[in-house]
Design a binder for these strands. Structure first.
Lengths: 202, 202
DNA sequence: TGTACATCAGTGAACGCGCGTTCACTGATGTAC
DNA sequence: TGTACATCAGTGAACGCGCGTTCACTGATGTAC
């Protein structure tokens, strides 16, 4: 039947990802420990290595989920926004990102805790998901700056994403920004609302 | 004389900071190891704990230096810019920050690798130095937006700092931004020249 | 200047902790006939 | 259906590594008289 073994294998895999996700949601990457996970999953430590090459692979699997959740939340924000106000749309997206990060801080941080070491091996799903987010940004951007060259749109897309990321990142660490979290929304709005206006416009 | 002991103590302290700085410049925080450092300084591991409470204190001492270096480089960029073009000044500052991060990546990263755990105990020098950077930004900002309320200037100052930080941070990780480092300058220029233009200006 | 004593920096082996990963072994599942 | 054998998931004690921190001890420096 070639099924029972494979089934169990897949079950274990799914269970491990679930448990790891739960742990990451609460305590971030450092809360994922082979021994604890095995105990919780009711298997031996070694079994993990039958299903994942590496603890890192497991974390990556959770990150894939987290990444999709961010994307979904930001997409939803875009969908909820009436079209025709691209600046408002971008602000709404940024707020959605902020809210996700605020509500899922450890999981969100884990997204960026990955091995930077291995220069290669950026997984396919990662690039795809990132591309989705980028096109979500590029879309309203093109409407705001219809005459901008595609190269500049691409650069600015990434630049704006990074900007929002930076605001959220430092904003969530009191140590640095010193800004109460409820003012971060306003901060983003403030920074972005000046985007509307280009010297050539109006 | 009360001097020989104290002198040695200060010498050791200075030597340890120098050595740790050298290591951090090359390999970041993980390159600072008590044993290695002691060996290099020609003292015992325990001696480090006579001078610093903690390895963390030592890293903080290095960070104080790094922080001052960033501040100096950004200040220099401001000084080199002719007055009267506040947007250009801000772009120049951002570029200076980018260059510092690019040329001092491990040391710059270490600045943000600190214990976030201890909610308190943000050292005085840290806040002071950060304040300097902020006022460096707020200054041209006020000239661009003369009618902005002080609260909003303060928020936007921090927001813009965070934005630049985000662009630099993600920009230096190929994995995420996918932007060649030589285009980062242009990216910053692009983002800033639009973020800071207002309808009232020309 | 000299002697006795006190202090405290300096020493480094040892402690303690946390953890990922391996590997020789076992036992359940699948396959061949 | 039954038996013999093969495969490979599952096991978990043990390995290995890295490291910060401690602590009983020593010896140089400082102080008191």
């Amino acid at each position: 039947m070639a099924g029972k073994v494979q089934k169990k294998r897949e079950d274990l895999r799914a269970k491990l990802i679930d448990l790891a996700e739960e742990r990451i949601k609460v305590g971030g990457i450092s809360a994922v420990r082979a021994r604890d996970l095995a105990k919780e999953a009711g298997c031996a430590v070694g079994a993990i290595y039958n299903v994942f090459g590496d603890m890192n692979d497991l974390v990556m699997a959770v990150n894939a989920r987290t990444f999709k959740r961010v994307g979904a939340q930001v997409s939803a924000a875009v969908a909820a926004e009436p079209p025709g106000h691209p600046v408002k749309t971008m602000i709404a997206m940024s707020h959605a990102y902020l809210h996700f990060a605020r509500d899922n801080t450890p999981a969100w941080r884990t997204l960026f805790d990955l091995e930077v070491s291995t220069e290669e091996s950026v997984p396919k799903w990662y690039l795809e998901e990132l591309q989705k987010v980028f096109s979500l940004i590029a879309d309203p951007l093109k409407r705001i700056f219809p005459d901008m060259s595609p190269e500049d749109v691409s650069l600015m897309t990434r630049g704006l994403f990074s900007s929002v990321h930076g605001i959220v990142l430092l904003g969530l660490e009191k140590r640095i920004s010193g800004v109460p979290i409820d003012q971060l929304e306003h901060m983003i709005t403030l920074v972005f609302s000046h985007l509307t206006s280009t010297p050539s416009e109006k």
